[in-house]
Simulated assay, not measured.
Amino acid sequence: MRAEGEQGSTGYAAAELEGFYAQQGLTFRPTWATSGTVLLQGLVSGDFDVANHGPAQLYDAIGNGACARALRPTQGAACGVIVRTGLHLDTTLPYPRVLTQLRGRTIGVAARGAAQELVLRSLLKDAGLNPDTDVSWVAIGVGAAAASALASGQVDAAMSYSQLETNLAAEGSRYDKLVDLAGSHTLLGAFWQSVAVANCGWADDHHDTVMKFCFALNQGFEALEKDPAAGPRAFAWLGLGPDPGRARILWKTYNMPVVDIPPLNRTNWNHQAKFASGGTAPDISAYVVDGCATA
């Protein structure tokens, strides 16, 4: 399995820590990655069986001929648009007008063409900006490197997420949030920040194993909802928080997108296409493993 060592991997971590994979006779071996392109290449080639990936980039890849099977959403909307405090932008303006202040600014994303950029490009268009000419894009990676890029002024703005905000706080770096996009009640609607995606060959040839994996993963998410200690344990395992106490605080702050995930249905599946550059969702019956989300 491959994923980012971040909030979107919380369900996987909970399933491992609670022993749900082992109960199904499965061995969980995560490999962390920071690039959606690397994730897709490894998944399609069969280097690993499952990846955690943004649906918009997945849809575009399928449209270009890649084969992958979606299992279930693993995180709801968990981001925001943040800027350096020193820019003194007006955070009280309504959306989408508030984003017009990004004209001429430099925006940092984990990797060019990744899910963060695709979503933000859609928001900029809502604000009447041309994402290709009105702003500049810089790949800043994730973790400490991304925090440093924003804090040092290498970029003016970025799409925020729990790991970035945590690293900025650890450095004592302040930021302003122009748009809060965390939760299903925001302007993104029934948005999935990430979905579990399986290699086509593995999913098609090992259906029983896939269902065992889905059952264990679903148990992990159930534990996150029902066991107050499961989330902090998973955050600590993922490195979100230097100690159990800090992990508990961070879980309290950032748990919503992990426990409030819009369900997998045709309407929500098609909704993700709004943020894909192709603008079209692939056929749900062809690219979703039936029964995984409810296993």
Rank of each mutant, 00 (worst) to 15 (best):
N52C: 11
A78N: 13
D180G: 03
L217Y: 05
C67V: 10
S122Q: 01
D126V: 10
L150S: 13
A111V: 15
T100S: 10
D283T: 01
T74K: 11
V38H: 13
R266V: 10
L99G: 01
D227N: 11
P131N: 12
D208C: 04
S173N: 11
L89D: 06
I107S: 00
L150R: 09
A190P: 04
Q154V: 15
Q193Y: 02
Q116F: 15
T85K: 14
K125F: 08
P282V: 11
T186L: 07
R174F: 05
F213M: 14
A77W: 08
A51Q: 01
E225A: 05
D243F: 15
Q193S: 11
H88L: 13
A146V: 09
H88T: 03
N64A: 12
N270V: 13
E18W: 09
D205E: 15
V109C: 02
R72D: 09
F48C: 13
N218T: 03
T209H: 14
A145T: 12
R112P: 08
A216D: 07
S277E: 07
A223Q: 11
A33K: 15
L164P: 03
A198K: 11
L188S: 02
G172P: 02
T10W: 06
H53W: 15
N270C: 11
A145W: 02
G291W: 09
M211S: 08
R84L: 14
G128M: 01
D260G: 01
P228W: 08
R97C: 11
R103F: 10
A139P: 00
V38W: 09
R72G: 04
A293D: 06
H88S: 10
A151D: 02
P263L: 05
G11Y: 03
A78G: 04
A14C: 12
Q41Y: 13
L89S: 01
C292G: 09
L178E: 01
V155Q: 05
L181W: 00
A14V: 13
G143Y: 09
V135I: 15
Q57P: 05
G25W: 02
V109M: 00
S148V: 14
Q101H: 12
Y59S: 07
L87W: 08
T85H: 04
A146N: 00
V179Y: 06
T280A: 15
M159I: 11
A127V: 06
S285F: 14
T100C: 05
G108S: 14
D47V: 07
A146E: 00
V258C: 08
P228I: 04
V50R: 00
L217W: 04
R105W: 12
V155H: 04
E225I: 15
N167P: 08
V50G: 06
T34S: 14
A146C: 05
T37Q: 11
Y21W: 13
Q219G: 06
H53Q: 15
N268A: 06
A149F: 02
